[in-house]
Design a protein around this nucleic acid. Structure first.
Lengths: 352, 352
DNA sequence: TGAATGCATCATAGCGCTACGATGATCGGC
DNA sequence: GCCGATCATCGTAGCGCTATGATGCATTCA
């Protein structure tokens, strides 16, 4: 058997994988147009004649055709997927942003590929690597702190990148967020304006949650510049929970017996502190004023209602979506800013 | 110019899209093996000789090769993606499940494609349709109630499907969850056992949240069978929030003046009710006993700590992952159950 | 020693789609 | 009436990878 005949045999015996699902070709045949026209119709319906369009639409529904985005992604060298990496989806802040972002992107036919890094840079890098394997239309990261490898990967890929929930450094590409030190400063200023002088910042997991940590330093700095008699930053190594808030308040009272104002890195912690005050019979805000962060679900309704700083995860989600859609639509107008400050709002309620 | 020459011209003038990214071919060349071997190495490293494997690994890191999963997915007719559709990612229950699921799947090299249906069956169907465009390795849905179209699409696709967070009907393929009527019944039984006789179930968005609604009917049924003197189901049309809980308690007191026990479809609602009691000077549990659902973050730490029913979103996530990995590994052992009951636990605390 | 077996490696044909440029048909403008 | 422009449509070559079966070589068994 010579090479040629073996080739022939190869050709004939080769069994192709089945896959009898409906393809664009089937639609084209039924609609009596070429596959290109079907593809064109699917991507820009306006570009095909109404007659052909109708015929194609009919064929699609008759066959129950579902386009294969994997094939499309390969052919177009870019898939209709946006990869989002957050530290934790359990965190209400990020859940809110992801939720909004997902809705906005879905409206434009983009899917969301989700990953969570658990606040680890190495994990994040691994996630970015797999994310890039999907040739995503864009990548969304949380914060500005990333490993060198992550930056390199993303830069090399040429994919639009949006970093969210933090401002103040140099983004890889685009950024949407706000300044965390300023949040801390706002909280401190507010407490000082209420005549509080013995302050504490209660945070959790600040060794990993770099943004919470910068809120703390913003707070400390302003407390120092103002005439805060004393101020402390107290960290709980575990997650930011209500229970942690109670523990943190206890620790704060040990350190600053005459404590009269606290800022918390998260409303859950603030709620825990509120509960602990109630347990100890400490009047809020008379004895201790409490400022939170996040304006979570319960913050307006708890007792006393919680003064807090709202970062607006919703708005961040919406702006991220806008930037992404902008970059995908090709024209990245150099005029529009690639860094969007969504600011923060202090909402004064009964706890201060 | 005849057809043939034009064909030739076509061939020569055709400009191919650039894409100079590193491909498997580049790796193969550098490692002096064929692309097939590289592919094999990437999929089952044990199948290639150690020598070749090392050479390939070296080449991969030298070139910074990132596999293209889109191409892989197309060739293999199934991508390494699991599509998860939940009603809302803002809901702490689902956030927990998704988070766990994502971690478990990521450990096996699977990505998560996320969608949220906002409790709409039509929206869900649209999400399933796009999800299937990705030829996912599996699809995860929430609950057992889906449109006929959704079922048809999924059945036709042959993709493994897991429905989670609900049991009691016929799943499309596999299911992990628990019985919601039983949860309601447990709550009612608990209140009855505490001598409460004038009961109410407080729920939100029950016209859409079918599972909350079945918890309510389970509650009502048990309350009726027991010697509950009166029981009511009260619904808030908006989302399940702390504020809604306060409103609902107010409504319940109007309807049942001698109210002495409530079950809530969600711990956020329970917390709101707790706050409203505090505002009104109603002692909990002396005057009114409160049972929640969800065992959220704050439930153990609030005042009084909340008796609640834990559905274990974590466990659900883990079991879903197990089922998915099982189906992907090919052998669907008919022995193992395709329906897993994760049950629920009533955690008694100070509010009852 | 020759046939049978096992093992590592390879060549190649698609997977289903989109981008590119080509092809006719239609339409004004001079 | 001819030429270029415009428009809808088409043909086809990949996109980068994996599945399939073939190949060549070393090992084992009779």
């Amino acid at each position: 058997m010579d090479a040629d005949s073996s080739r022939l045999q190869t050709r004939s015996t080769r069994k192709r994988r089945k896959m009898q699902r409906v393809t664009m070709m089937d639609v084209a045949k039924l609609a009596q147009v070429s596959p290109s026209t079907v593809s064109l119709y699917l991507r820009k319906p306006a570009a095909v004649s109404p007659a052909a369009g109708q015929e194609i639409a009919r064929a699609i529904s008759a066959l129950g055709y579902v386009p294969n985005l994997v094939a499309g992604g390969l052919a177009a060298a870019s898939s209709k997927v946006v990869s989002i990496i957050v530290p934790s989806i359990r965190n209400a802040f990020f859940a809110e942003t992801v939720s909004t972002l997902q809705s906005e992107l879905a409206a434009e036919g983009l899917q969301v590929l989700l990953g969570h890094s658990e606040y680890g840079e190495d994990q994040e890098e691994a996630l970015v690597r797999t994310a890039l394997s999907w040739a995503p239309a864009a990548v969304v990261l949380t914060g500005l702190a990333h490993s060198a490898g992550t930056r390199k990967l993303l830069r090399a890929s040429g994919v639009p990148v949006v970093e969210m929930w933090e401002l103040g450094g140099t983004p890889i590409d685009m950024a949407v967020g706000f300044s965390h030190p300023q949040v801390g400063a706002s909280a401190a200023r507010h407490l000082l304006s209420k005549g509080r002088r013995a302050l504490a910042f209660l945070g959790a997991r600040m060794q990993e949650d770099h943004r919470a940590e910068t809120r703390a330093s913003g707070f400390a700095e302003t407390a120092r510049l103002g005439d805060g008699l004393s101020h402390e930053i107290i960290n709980h190594p575990g997650a930011a929970t209500v229970e942690a808030g109670a523990l943190l308040l206890t620790r704060a009272l040990e350190r600053i017996p005459n404590l009269d104002g606290i800022a918390c890195s998260n409303d859950l912690i603030a709620l825990g502190a509120l509960f602990e005050c109630q347990r100890r019979g400490i009047a809020v805000p008379d004895a201790i004023a409490v400022v939170g962060f996040g304006d979570l679900d319960f913050s307006a309704s708890c007792i006393p209602s919680l003064t807090t700083i709202r970062p607006s995860g919703d708005l961040i989600g919406r702006e991220v979506a806008r930037l992404i859609l902008g970059s995908i639509q090709g024209d990245r107008p150099e005029g529009t800013s690639r860094i969007i400050d969504t600011g923060h709002v202090l909402i004064e309620r009964r706890s201060t």
